[in-house]
Design a protein around this nucleic acid. Structure first.
Length: 269
DNA sequence: CGCCAGGACGCCC
DNA sequence: GGGCGTCATGGC
């Protein structure tokens, strides 16, 4: 990792990293773009830690007010900086469509998020659009002054969540909190379980189907073989992979999926 | 206004 | 097991 400490900041050089592509591509919903004279700056959180991060020039980033220890132990892991994305993209380039997707938005990185936050966020995401998903999560966090834990949401009914205006998803959120609080669903155990067991365990929660389960596994448990199929990826599979997704990318299918998702949604924009 | 959204559920056959 | 209507809300 190519970084150094400057005053209270960490300066990072990383060619396989783009803030807009990574933080606003639909894998996380709580990063805010701040216009502050930098090339671009975002503010956001991971668990109870907030971060301000800027892209100050091509492939140069500032982690504001971050100690070297926090950077190495927390943020470098969150941004998956210990993984070599150049090597990943080299593997993906064997496939024509994937190669184009990587060329289109090569700065996407998989964020290693919290499983509970992902569970709640992607239950909200179903049959919904990204701007509205962000709004619902923002109202949830405003209510607790942070992203609520499962304990914070103990005993919450769908009716209690009407302020979210999350529609039919309220009852699913209430049930998810109940499952986690009773221990019927143990996210830490699921994260370590064989993938098919993990899928089945997550789907015991009402409102968690195939797509949401894959998202929780990929974004919240760093299971890179998980492959969420939404309406956009369905189009990619029909248009470019009528004979199936390439075997060689299977272990990192989730990361490949991120490039493809961004590509299909934005290439004609 | 109508169509759609990082879908899942319940019911039907 | 696959097909289809339904579910709230609001972005565009």
């Amino acid at each position: 990792m190519d970084y150094y400490v400057k005053n209270n900041d960490i300066i990072l050089h990383e060619k396989d990293f783009d803030l807009d592509e990574t933080l606003d591509c639909g894998q996380a919903f709580r990063w805010k773009r701040i216009e502050s004279g930098y090339r671009c700056t975002y503010e956001g959180n991971f668990l109870n830690d907030s971060l301000k991060i800027s892209e100050i020039s091509e492939k140069t980033f500032v982690f504001h007010n971050v100690s070297e220890e926090d950077f190495l132990n927390k943020w470098a892991d969150y941004f998956d900086l210990y993984t070599d994305y150049s090597e990943l993209k080299r593997q993906f380039s064997e496939d024509k469509t994937l190669s184009e997707a990587c060329a289109f938005a090569g700065g996407i990185r998989l964020l290693k998020q919290n499983s509970w936050e992902c569970l709640i966020s992607f239950i909200i995401s179903q049959n919904n659009n990204i701007p509205r998903i962000k709004g619902i999560i923002e109202r949830l966090c405003q209510n607790y002054s942070r992203f609520p834990s499962a304990e914070d949401m103990a005993g919450i009914t769908a009716d209690d969540l009407s302020y979210l205006r999350s529609g039919f998803r309220g009852k699913y959120l209430s049930h998810a909190a109940e499952c986690v609080n009773t221990g019927e669903v143990n996210l830490a155990e699921i994260a370590a379980a064989p993938i098919d067991e993990a899928r089945a365990a997550l789907r015991k929660i009402k409102g968690v189907g195939p797509k949401v389960a894959e998202c929780v596994l990929l974004f919240g448990m760093y299971r890179k073989e998980a492959f969420p199929v939404d309406v956009w990826i369905k189009r990619v599979l029909e248009e470019y992979y009528p004979d199936g997704f390439p075997e060689f990318a299977k272990d990192n299918a989730g990361i490949a999926q991120q490039y493809l998702f961004h590509y299909i949604r934005n290439k004609n924009a």
